[in-house]
């Protein structure tokens, strides 16, 4: 049912990846995304793919969880790779009417689909191995320099924390209200698109009412504890860099060097 959403769900564990500093994990994810788009030939693509597989194996999360999160984007991958096949340019190896397929088109399709898959795998790895609170904490720290520009970093992070915190709660609530209305004979499965949307009214109205009620209660509870934004606020859990974090940075730098060398000495394919 609704609870089966696996994309972005934290899976508890004690692996190396779980223990990395969340700030490092975010920075490395961004770096890896750049790496993935710096691959211009098969050797570098293979290097990045191997690195991704290594990270996945280290994370200790069952592989089928990754497969589940890939299912969400499989259509996007198919469409983009299909489009890329036809926009290859160069000498066509197959021609049928206006459809021309060239070798470089096929290469492009392969690169684009592998890149998207790697992106999803790496970002799922981040959300699988990092609790939402750690994640927003890290984002708040990383965005701190923006304070100079009067960006309300703490408030943004707090909003993210609250939003993430309430996703499962609201899903559970939706489940409950749907059950309650089904018990009263609501028919949500049959009928056309319009009928199905109309059938959602008895679910959406109570859901909105309870979301507002929760927001109000949370605001009161926060005010009762004298919450007044980020200024002068200390943390219960401060983040510290550990040897493991430095090791991961060094390994990633080596990876980057490898990719750069590949790009210098091997001819680009796309």
């Amino acid at each position: 049912m609704i609870r089966d959403v696996s994309f972005g769900q934290f899976m508890p564990g004690k692996s190396v990846i779980h223990r990395l500093d969340p700030r490092i994990k975010i920075v490395l994810l961004i770096a890896y995304i750049v790496f993935v788009f710096c691959t211009f030939n098969f050797v570098s693509l293979a290097i990045v793919s191997a690195a991704t597989i290594a990270v996945i194996l280290l994370s200790g999360i069952p592989f089928r969880m990754y497969v589940k999160s890939l299912k969400v984007v499989i259509i996007i991958v198919l469409i983009t790779s299909l489009l890329n096949i036809f926009y290859g340019g160069g000498d066509p190896i197959f021609e049928w009417g206006i459809i021309k397929i060239s070798l470089s088109g096929i290469y492009r399709a392969i690169f684009v689909s592998v890149r998207i898959v790697l992106l999803i795998l790496l970002s799922s790895c981040l959300t699988f191995t990092t609790t939402p609170t750690d994640l927003t904490d890290a984002i708040e720290r990383l965005m701190k320099p923006l304070k100079v520009l009067h960006v309300k970093v703490h408030e943004i992070a707090m909003m993210m924390t609250i939003a993430l915190r309430f996703v499962p709660t609201l899903l559970e609530e939706t489940d409950k209200i749907m059950s309650a209305q089904k018990a009263r004979g609501a028919d949500m499965e049959s009928g056309g698109f319009i009928k199905k949307i109309k059938a959602m009214t008895p679910v959406l109205i109570p859901l909105f009412v309870s979301a507002f009620r929760r927001a109000y209660e949370l605001a009161v509870a926060m005010e009762c504890r004298c919450y007044r934004g980020g200024d002068g606020r200390t943390r219960m859990k401060t983040l510290h860099m550990k040897p493991l974090d430095y090791v991961s940075v060094i390994l990633s730098c080596l990876l980057l060097t490898g990719i750069i060398l590949c790009n210098i000495f091997l001819a680009p394919i796309i």
Partner: peptide, 24 residues
């Protein structure tokens, strides 16, 4: 269900009570 008041949704109490029997 537990806390069934959270499932009320219609404009009037009358309409809300009639949701079940109308579905029937």
């Amino acid at each position: 269900f537990q806390y069934p008041e959270y499932q009320l949704f219609d404009e009037t109490v009358y309409k809300d009570i009639s949701f079940g029997p109308a579905n029937k």
